[in-house]
Design a binder for these strands. Structure first.
Lengths: 141, 141
DNA sequence: AGAGGAGTGGGTAAAAGTGGGTAAAATTAT
DNA sequence: ATAATTTTACCCACTTTTACCCACTCCTCT
């Protein structure tokens, strides 16, 4: 994260992306989700389609996830400028290190400290979840 | 582990691998897991398929296991360069000894000290697990 | 002893990443 | 409406990292 609020997408991730436009929005946790326009289309349809605007939960999801979304372009050096409002909502400050996570069809962008805290807090859950995978694997086999 | 962060795969293990590409990621404990692309495909499918991105456990597993994964190539001398981020997450320092464990369908890479500590800490669990194995064997027979 | 595989170290060129300067655009003030 | 200031985008130059290749040593087996 440089002092202009730009973030360099590591080449190993960037090379997987075709096109130079990405959609950035608030995630469930204190971080940002970054999608390709196509993936975003899917996700937003999924949320919008889950119920009508007269359902309070749907409205909540729309406000938290759909409304903050913004299209951003990757510049010629492979960086994207994260809009200020989104930076704030994920506690991303310029000039500070950020963590990017690539997960097949989307990315997550975290403030380092927020991410470290998350990992610490979720350690027990993680161990449990891993044990559950074991069950899943054995059932599948 | 040399000072460039490369790790030589012992020939006895290397000869079992067909192809020169491996997938390295964070393991459950403080070490790295190394898979063939085929094995990795299985594992990542298992995790990705276990639920959607709107499930907090799935996200946790994705963040801890899927996101850190990187493809690496074995060089002509039989070494792989361990990406810096992964080296850090397993406390592997260059110029220091590392332990590799070959376990049929995957490998584990440990920092020597971390591995020693793990063995000490897990001694009781190990003895228990061995007892349980005994039960399992007698039931099966 | 010599050949061949295994392991080690390092040099070089290309790619990736970083920072900053300048021009264009937008906003604000006069 | 125009000038001034801020913001944004774009480009270029520099630094760091990575990938690739080659040379050497050591050990083992013939």
């Amino acid at each position: 994260m440089d002092d202009k609020g730009r973030f360099l997408i590591p080449s190993r991730i960037r090379n997987e992306i075709e096109g130079s436009i990405l959609v950035i929005t608030r995630a469930v946790e204190k971080c940002l989700w970054i999608f390709t326009p196509e993936e975003w289309e899917k996700i937003s349809r999924l949320i919008m389609g889950s119920s009508s605007m007269f359902n309070s939960r749907t409205r909540l999801l729309q406000r938290r996830i759909i409304a903050p979304a913004q299209e951003c372009e990757i510049d010629k050096s492979g960086r994207i400028t994260i809009p200020q409002t989104l930076r704030q909502s994920a506690c991303l400050s310029s000039k500070k290190e950020a963590i990017i996570l690539g997960v097949h069809n989307y990315m997550e962008l975290w403030d380092v400290d927020a991410y470290d805290n998350y990992l610490l807090d979720s350690e027990d859950d993680f161990l449990e979840a891993a044990e559950d995978l074991d069950k899943l694997l054995r059932e599948g086999a």
